[in-house]
């Protein structure tokens, strides 16, 4: 039997952190921005069925970068936590802060447990308030810490560069079209400073819209509505995109394309996602993603 080498705790933790950070950086970036009527999630995602963003509860949304199976696990855990909380107490008693704490505990435990590999994920938990001052955005890095963010946040890929870019340009009270444009602009900047085009069909966009009449504020923006918002010129778009967020006007025509106000994945047989999930991800972006979407 060989004697195991002594590894100092500092060194072990540093190694684990580096491992997780590298894993996260291999995935594509996503950004979460506050705008006048809520919070918008924007990311590049070639897959239609595997989402990076999802609804957790009435006012709470979830975004994740990193390894799909790991963050999907955390997402389902979060939905369970929120639904159980809401059923036991009241719908108002489910808060992003509580959820972020649960995630922090989980990630922290996994990160420091020697038996498991650290999760290669970075999460964002956002809650939309009644007014912009009530909005909360929490970023949860792989090690279980919580960062309270304001205005804008980027995770995954070259997140640092993107956040720097967003910090300079993001301001309060942007319209949805403006925020979306800024997000796409930020995402299309590559590490070496070049710009590349991200077509609308490779974008995954979702909003937590406080003006939605329904109790559940989360909504995916897909298809025509997305292209309309992207084409709209910043200032001129403000009046036109406000009614479009209420979703109902174009509901009959865009029926399954998200007009139903439900998950965009509705028609893709998401029941099979669990099984096909990884293959789907690998197949969709096998060239550069190596399953890290």
């Amino acid at each position: 039997m060989s004697t195991p080498f002594y590894v100092s705790p500092q060194q072990a933790m540093a190694d684990r952190a580096e491992y997780a950070r590298k894993g996260i950086a291999r995935g594509r970036s996503l950004v979460v921005l506050q705008y006048a009527d809520g919070i918008v999630f924007v990311g590049e995602n070639p897959s239609r069925a595997l989402h990076k963003f999802s609804e957790i509860y009435d006012r709470i949304g979830f975004a994740a970068a990193g390894k799909y199976n790991e963050y999907e696990n955390l997402r389902i855990g979060g939905v369970r936590y929120a639904d159980l909380r809401g059923y036991t107490y009241d719908r108002d008693d489910v808060t992003a802060r509580g959820l972020a704490n649960v995630y922090a505990q989980t990630l922290g435990t996994i990160f420091s447990s020697a038996a498991e590999k650290p999760y290669e994920v970075e999460l964002v938990v956002a809650e939309v308030g009644a007014g912009p001052e009530g909005d909360q955005i929490y970023r949860l890095p792989h090690d279980g810490s919580i960062v309270d963010e304001h205005g804008s946040v980027a995770v995954g890929g070259n997140a640092e560069q993107i956040s720097g870019f967003l910090d300079q340009r993001h301001r309060d009270g942007m319209s949805l079209a403006e925020a979306l444009k800024l997000a796409v602009q930020a995402l299309s900047r590559e590490a070496n400073g070049n710009e590349r085009e991200i077509p609308a069909e490779r974008l995954e966009v979702a909003v937590l819209d406080r003006t939605r009449p329904q109790q559940r504020k989360f909504k995916r923006i897909v298809g025509r509505q997305l292209t309309r918002l992207l084409d709209a010129d910043g200032a001129g778009a403000t009046p036109t995109d406000a009614p479009s967020d209420t979703e109902e006007p174009d509901a009959p025509s865009s029926g399954d394309a998200g007009g139903t106000g439900r998950e965009g994945a509705a028609e893709t047989g998401a029941g099979e996602t669990g099984k096909d999930g990884k293959d789907g991800a690998d197949g969709a972006d096998g060239t550069e993603g190596s399953g890290k979407e």
Partner: peptide, 18 residues
């Protein structure tokens, strides 16, 4: 009814389809 509502919503969020 409360539990039924919860179940439908939970299914929808977890599976991504109604």
């Amino acid at each position: 009814v409360k539990l039924f509502q919860l179940e439908l919503e939970h299914f929808e969020k977890v599976e991504g389809t109604t």
